[in-house]
Amino acid sequence: MLGIRPVMELMFWSFHSVAFDQLVNNAACCRYMSGGLINVPIVMRGPANGGTNVGATHSHTPEGLFAAFPGLKVCSPATPADAKGMMKTAIRDNDPVYVMENTTLYGNVGEVPDPAEGDFLIPLGKADIKREGSDISLIAHGASVLRCLEAAEILTSEHNINAEVVDLRSIRPLDQDAIIKSVKKTNRAVLVDESKPFCGVSAQITTLIQEYAFDYLDAPIKRVCTIDAPAIYSPHVEQDQLPNAERIVAQVLTIA
């Protein structure tokens, strides 16, 4: 790579397929195939979300797809601070890091540490507890974290249910310890994921919880995903297709 650390932008992650061989077969395997002699320190970033009424060909959420390939790292920030901290970490990483952004968050405002206070980095593979709770774990990434926070407020005010919100931040590597610790604490889990339900990120997390925290569960694991169909073009219908606070609350009330 001649010492260069490129940061490339995809207008939409939906367009990844035209470069799939380079993104997966080459970038993910180069260090392994060279016996560690060649690194590929690239960052690919861009929108990977629905909810903007741009149709099925511009609304894919492929984080679970890329996380399935060893050699790739995948993250999905939910806040301005996380976006900055993970991007800086991604640029410093010697492996390919794919940052799945959400265009509906681009206008959000939030506190970001002052550069004068030192270099601000968020390690990949480190989840964040966005809200402490004791009754149920809401586990999500990206914009779904904000929907979980909205749902948690409704659950507290209207149903006296204290929900913990776990922000994965990084899909691969995945902070398995944080997930299991939260579920062992609350004994219930609802996984919220803008991916489609079949082979989505939440499906993988369901397996982890079943393997490592099954005896701590007081109820079945529930999921709230994007309804399993291509992105709907109609604005108000697409909003119902995506995870939202109302759907999350409804799932929580089936087990808590």
Rank of each mutant, 00 (worst) to 15 (best):
E9I: 07
L10F: 12
W13G: 01
S14V: 13
F15I: 07
V18T: 13
A19P: 09
L23T: 03
A27W: 01
A28Q: 05
C30V: 15
M33N: 09
S34P: 09
G36L: 09
L37F: 09
N39G: 10
P41I: 14
R45V: 08
R45P: 04
T52R: 11
A56D: 13
H58N: 13
S59F: 00
S59W: 02
H60I: 14
G64E: 01
G64K: 03
G71I: 12
A81R: 06
D82V: 09
D82M: 06
G85D: 03
T89V: 08
A90G: 02
I91N: 11
N94D: 15
D95L: 13
M100V: 02
M100N: 02
L105S: 13
G107W: 08
N108V: 15
P113R: 05
A116F: 11
L121A: 08
L121Y: 14
L121V: 14
K126A: 13
K130M: 09
R131C: 09
E132R: 10
L138A: 06
I139K: 01
H141W: 11
A143V: 10
L146V: 02
E150Q: 08
I154P: 04
L155A: 03
S157F: 06
E158D: 14
E158Q: 13
R172F: 08
Q176W: 11
Q176A: 15
D177G: 06
I179C: 07
K184I: 04
N187H: 15
R188Q: 08
V190H: 03
V192Q: 01
D193P: 00
K196H: 10
P197T: 08
G200L: 08
Q204H: 14
I205F: 03
Q210F: 01
E211D: 15
Y212E: 12
L217D: 00
D218F: 05
C225D: 04
T226C: 08
T226R: 02
A229P: 06
I232D: 00
Q239H: 12
D240V: 05
D240F: 08
Q241C: 07
Q241W: 00
A245V: 00
A245W: 02
A250W: 01
I255N: 01
I255F: 04
